[in-house]
Amino acid sequence: MIKTTKLAKVYRTEEVETTALNEVDVEIREGEFVSVMGPSGCGKSTLLNVLGMIDSPSSGDYFFNGEEVGRLSERKRSNVRKHNLGFVFQSFNLIDELTVYENVELPMLYTKVPSVERKKRVEELLEGMNIMHRRNHFPQQLSGGQQQRVAVARAIVNRPKLILADEPTGNLDSANGDEVMKILAQLNSEGTTILMVTHSQYCAEFGNRIIRMLDGQVVTENLVKQYL
């Protein structure tokens, strides 16, 4: 599903040049649950952003479903993104001015899903996530765990092929974090490919492969124990 060759991302200011990704080669097959680990500043979030097409690489190739997408225009990237990818963030990134229902519905407005279908899908997901009773609440009225469940619901409402999760449990206590990880594992077991950045070894082991990064490079790739 994903293949990168010598993928690099360099941030330049007038005098300083920082290499966030240094010729990274990764491959993720359909149905995998890959965790990316590494110390702060090692480039894992940058890798996620580039693979999620919300940032563009400075050089190298990035193939998504066999198509080179690294050099696509913002408009085309946006099009690929909305039909294929779902995002879950550490800080949830729900829109404060929209209700739970409206937040989950939002991605479908961009993919022009008819309203009846939208309603059906949102309600199904909210039921599934056990937050239907909070559908008319605003994000700030929910607990962290509830917000992240809403964020996950929003990420999967368009039935994406790939979910990109950036420290999805980073702002949650262990019980809520566990719950979110179980949801992701469940989604993966149903066929959704997941790429997750995390600091937590515990969370990383919900996946089946762990990529470790340091200074913008992939240093090791290991299968998680149970898959060895």
Partner: peptide, 13 residues
């Protein structure tokens, strides 16, 4: 943040 979210969800400029 809203702009970021919308862009991630597929909104164009």
């Amino acid at each position: 943040r809203e702009v970021g979210v919308r862009k991630v969800l597929g909104s164009g400029r």
